[in-house]
């Protein structure tokens, strides 16, 4: 215990000016450290892009890189079969994500309420979102490839990535529907509209922008997914294109494929440095695609916010 006198002398010695400046200084230092940390994270992104651009520049500016098949000779190897594969696989993935994800989101938000079934589905979806993507690959390998006999095909890959996109699409569908005020629904019901009329004439049109935003974000992540596709057994060396869908749709679905990230992985894991140049070029292209998709999503979100203000 301090005596009264001691406390009084300490109070007299206490320099309030000095104390507040030191506190302020600590505050300012922390703000600067925080700013630097945030800046470092963004710098990381910048360094990756510049590194890929410099390493891969020779191939990025080379037109034949986009129009030739992979090859044993690094200078002749290209990404034709892999970018075509990426287009087909992503078309399938977006199809499945739309067909399965948007109705699931509508069900949970509009019909589910606080019912038991809805709660189970909801918990399930948040669990699925945290499952490592390679586990989806094992699921697809065990079920689609071996038990359903779809083989290592575009169909299997599209389904796998579609399931991977599902949680993001469901959540964004729910969020954009939730933003529509109750009064809109009640106005529709008051005029005698049934539930599906309300849904198709009002709720869906108003929430479409938000749903698309979520879909694009989910697709931008799925397009770079490598692990689940390697697990289902995607080939790394493909020197032909799948048949065009308007000529042989089923043949296209069951055709073997490769995608850009797998092609890149294949090149990275080779010892020759010339292949690393190809990998850097493919990586830069992937990065640009992801950036473009994210910018579109960002712009859409901004537009939607402006358009509907309740």
């Amino acid at each position: 215990m301090q005596t009264r006198g001691e406390v009084e002398t300490r109070l007299k010695e206490f320099d309030i000016e000095k104390y507040t400046t030191s506190v302020r200084r600590r505050d300012a230092i922390f703000e600067i450290v925080g700013l630097i940390a945030t800046f470092l994270v963004m710098l990381f992104l910048f360094v990756i892009s510049v590194d890929l651009l410099i390493d891969g520049w020779v191939r990025i500016k080379d037109g034949s890189f986009y129009t030739s098949y992979p090859s044993r000779f690094p200078e002749e190897a290209g990404i034709l079969s892999s970018w075509v594969g990426t287009v087909y696989v992503m078309a399938g993935a977006i199809f499945w994500a739309v067909v399965l994800g948007i109705p699931a989101g509508i069900y949970l938000e509009e019909y589910g309420g606080k019912g038991k079934i809805a709660r189970i589905i909801e918990a399930n979806i948040s669990n699925l979102a945290a499952v490592p993507s390679i586990v989806y690959g094992l699921l697809a390998l065990g079920v689609f490839v071996y038990r359903f006999k779809f083989g290592e095909s575009i169909l299997t890959a599209g389904l796998t990535l579609g399931l991977l996109m599902l949680p993001v699409v469901v959540v964004s569908t729910r969020e954009s529907i939730r933003r529509i005020p109750r009064s809109i629904r009640e106005a529709a019901y008051a005029l005698g509209a049934t539930r599906w009329e309300t849904l198709f004439h009002h709720i869906l049109p108003y929430s479409l922008g938000g749903i698309f935003t979520g879909l694009i974000i989910a697709a931008s992540r799925a397009i770079g997914e490598t692990a689940p596709l390697i697990t289902i057994g995607a080939l790394t060396f493909i020197a032909f294109l799948p048949p065009a869908p308007w000529e042989d749709f089923w043949g296209m679905l069951l055709s073997p494929f490769t995608v850009l990230p797998i092609q890149m992985y294949n090149w990275v894991s080779r010892p020759q440095e010339a292949f690393h140049t190809n990998a850097a070029a493919a990586g830069f292209i992937l990065l640009v695609i992801a950036l473009l998709m994210n910018s579109i999503a960002f712009y859409l979100r901004y537009k939607v916010r402006r358009k509907y203000q309740w």
Partner: peptide, 21 residues
């Protein structure tokens, strides 16, 4: 938005960066 974008960088690109940078 940049933090969001970092989440969309393909992981194989991070792999390249780890191995060769």
């Amino acid at each position: 938005p940049w933090l969001d974008f970092l989440e969309a960088v393909p992981t194989v690109v991070y792999g390249y960066f780890a191995l060769l940078f």
